[in-house]
């Protein structure tokens, strides 16, 4: 591979090891692509005949479509809420900056650190009490909590290099609090807000453990459907969904990669 050519001699074995590791990371995942085209009813590599029947099943089976719809509803709503709450926390902590606010910011990270199974039990118990079990609202609330820490982190990082005196200057120039937030601080925090939104959405979109505990029939997300598809004798339609999700991830990564390259060459 031409990639190796100009690396110095001492690093060569580690380069080889690294690409072996990357192969280990990527290769197993790519295997689901050929499997999704199997003409059989069970998971297998297609031999000779390739079939689209499992993709067809995705489009015609209303449960798959409904699960995507539910995942989008919950994902987008919880992302919006997590972004609002997380951004407010990060901005508040940035400006206040006392020991107490630092401690609160650490506390806000709890949903990211606590193992999912632990808060899944807690959500179940509390949601029974609040009447939120198996409702969209209930799942949105749980996912909002799980998304918030990522927004706090990314917005805090974006604000870390913003001078506190900027806020002071805006106020001295006659902006009220709302104007200062809207026209000065939030724009400065925007890259962090965007990154946090991506993290929060993906967290919700991928969440399974919490969903297993707080939803059943009424709210049925995509990971839940995939999980059930794996549990009952492994439906190859799961391979078709997996292929689509892998391609979407790859596409998003490539767009980001090209953007970063362009910014690099521009700056």
């Amino acid at each position: 591979m031409s990639l190796y050519e100009r690396t110095s001699a001492g690093i060569r074995p580690t380069v080889f090891g690294t690409w072996l590791a990357l192969l280990f990371l990527v290769l197993p995942v790519t295997m689901v692509v050929p499997v999704s085209f199997t003409p059989q009813r069970y998971l297998s590599l297609p031999s000779g005949v390739w079939s689209l029947r499992h993709y067809d099943a995705l489009i015609t089976d209303p449960i798959w479509l409904r699960s995507i719809r539910d995942s989008l509803i919950v994902g987008l709503s919880s992302t919006a809420l997590a972004v609002a709450l997380g951004t407010a926390t990060a901005i508040g902590c940035w400006r206040v900056s006392t020991r107490a606010s630092e401690a609160i910011r650490m506390l806000m990270l709890a949903p990211m650190i606590v193992p999912a199974i632990v808060h899944a039990l807690g959500f179940y118990q509390a949601w029974v009490q609040f009447g939120l079990i198996d409702t969209h609202l209930g799942l949105i609330a749980a996912h909002t909590m799980k998304g918030m820490p990522y927004v706090v982190i990314t917005v805090s990082a974006a604000l870390a290099n913003v001078d506190l005196r900027l806020e002071q200057a805006a106020r001295n120039l006659g902006a009220n609090l709302w104007q200062t937030l809207r026209m000065v601080i939030v724009p400065a925090a925007m890259p962090g807000v965007a990154a946090g939104a991506v993290f929060a959405f993906v967290t919700s979109w991928d969440e399974l453990v919490v969903n297993l505990f707080v939803t059943s029939r009424n709210v049925y997300t995509l990971p839940r459907k995939i999980w059930d598809g794996i549990q009952d004798n492994i439906n190859p339609a799961v391979a078709a969904v997996a292929t689509i999700l892998i391609l979407l991830t790859l596409a998003a990564m490539l767009v980001r990669f090209v953007q970063a390259k362009r910014q690099e060459s521009a700056g």
Binding site: L85, C93, A110, G122, Q125, A141, M145
Partner: peptide, 25 residues
Amino acid sequence: RAYWILVLVPLAALALFYLYPLAKV
């Protein structure tokens, strides 16, 4: 004080919808 509100509203949400469930466990 206004900036404290930005911190305290999310904290209240966290307390009710996260810390309380954990406490229940």
